[in-house]
Simulated assay, not measured.
Amino acid sequence: MANIIRQLQFYLTYPFVQYALIVGVLIAFCSSLLGVTLVLKRFSFIGDGLSHVAFGAMAVATLFKLTNNTLFIMPVTIAAAILLLRTGQNTKLKGDAAIAMLSVGALAIGYLVLNIFSTSANVSGDVCSTLFGSTSILTLTNDEVKLCISMSIVVVAFFCVFYNRIFTVTFDENFTKATGKYVAFYNLMIAIITAVIIVLAMNLVGSLLITALLIFPALSAMRIMYSFKGVVIYSAILSVMGALVGMLISILFSTPVGSTIVAIDILIFLMNCLMGKLMRR
């Protein structure tokens, strides 16, 4: 145990490890805030669909050899979020069908682009790293860290300022409309903020595992807490704890970052399920 602590202290002296932990905690915290709303509004799969769109955008950005992929991926993912929100209101094309079409289409096109216009000798390895997470979280530049911090501040500020509106839109859209509030605007902002979180989380857990950051902490908190505010706060605590422990384990034992964080989130969910049953008894 003493050796592990000394090894951890040694790793924490490196700036790139400190950057990774800061970014990982911020992403987990932001994900937990919107995750509760997405679960309650039954929008859980929107994260999965947008993550695949982000993968397709990443493939195109790689094709054009852009120096900062995020500046291309984020607008594309935000546009996809707006499109999903609009098509989900179409009676001819339901929301779940639109998500499925966009998700599968973007994933297929992204993989096709990477194979046809390959810029690397290890296409399969690159794709696997992008989908399931890689050590890219440990190679963040100062600009990427600053971008993540600034976008995290925007997400937290939006949630705090519009907390009451988000609460009412989450539980009763008809009542919110009756009070004269612009429900479509708040739904649109929730979709855009979700897209921002997904783009930021790609380096942490990979495209296919992003949904876990949004869903598991919220579901875990719902096993224990019964108020919206309580669920949001407890979800944030669990999400940050899961990301921090997962990243530390990954650094110490050289396990995949994304998969390790999701595995810790699963353990946290199971523990809260057990705690919830014991409390009800």
Rank of each mutant, 00 (worst) to 15 (best):
M1I: 10
A2V: 14
I4K: 08
R6K: 14
L8F: 12
Q9M: 13
Q9G: 15
F10V: 09
F10H: 14
Y11C: 07
L12M: 15
F16N: 13
F16A: 08
Y19P: 07
Y19F: 12
I22W: 07
V25N: 00
A28Y: 01
S32M: 04
S32Y: 00
L33R: 02
L40T: 01
F45W: 00
I46Q: 02
D48E: 03
L50P: 02
F55Y: 06
F55C: 05
G56I: 05
A59L: 05
V60T: 04
T62N: 04
L63F: 12
K65S: 10
L66C: 04
L66E: 04
N68C: 00
L71N: 06
L71A: 08
P75L: 04
V76F: 06
I78A: 05
I78E: 01
I82Q: 02
I82P: 02
R86H: 11
N90H: 14
T91M: 13
T91E: 15
K94G: 13
D96A: 03
A100I: 05
L102I: 03
S103N: 02
G105H: 03
G105A: 13
A108R: 07
A108H: 04
I109E: 06
Y111L: 12
L112Y: 11
V113P: 03
V113M: 04
N115Q: 11
I116K: 10
F117Y: 09
S118F: 02
A121Q: 12
N122G: 11
G125N: 12
D126A: 14
V127S: 12
C128R: 12
F132E: 12
G133R: 02
I137T: 10
I137G: 06
L138R: 07
V145T: 14
K146F: 14
C148I: 15
M151N: 09
S152K: 10
I153L: 14
V156H: 03
A157V: 13
F158E: 01
F159T: 08
N164Y: 10
F167I: 13
T168I: 11
D172E: 00
E173Q: 09
E173P: 00
F175N: 05
F175L: 06
A178Y: 03
T179S: 05
K181T: 07
K181N: 11
Y182T: 13
Y182H: 15
F185L: 15
Y186P: 03
L188Q: 02
L188H: 00
I193N: 00
A195I: 01
V196N: 10
V205P: 04
L208I: 13
I210V: 15
L213D: 06
L214W: 03
F216M: 13
S220C: 10
S220G: 05
A221N: 10
I224D: 11
M225I: 11
F228M: 15
K229A: 13
G230W: 11
G230A: 13
V231E: 05
V232N: 12
I233V: 15
Y234K: 08
S235F: 04
L238K: 06
S239L: 00
S239V: 00
G242C: 12
A243E: 01
G246K: 08
S250I: 10
I251D: 09
I251A: 08
L252V: 08
V257Q: 10
T260A: 06
I261S: 03
V262E: 05
V262H: 01
V262Y: 07
F269M: 12
M271W: 15
C273F: 09
C273M: 09
L274P: 06
G276N: 09
M279E: 14
M279S: 15
R281G: 09
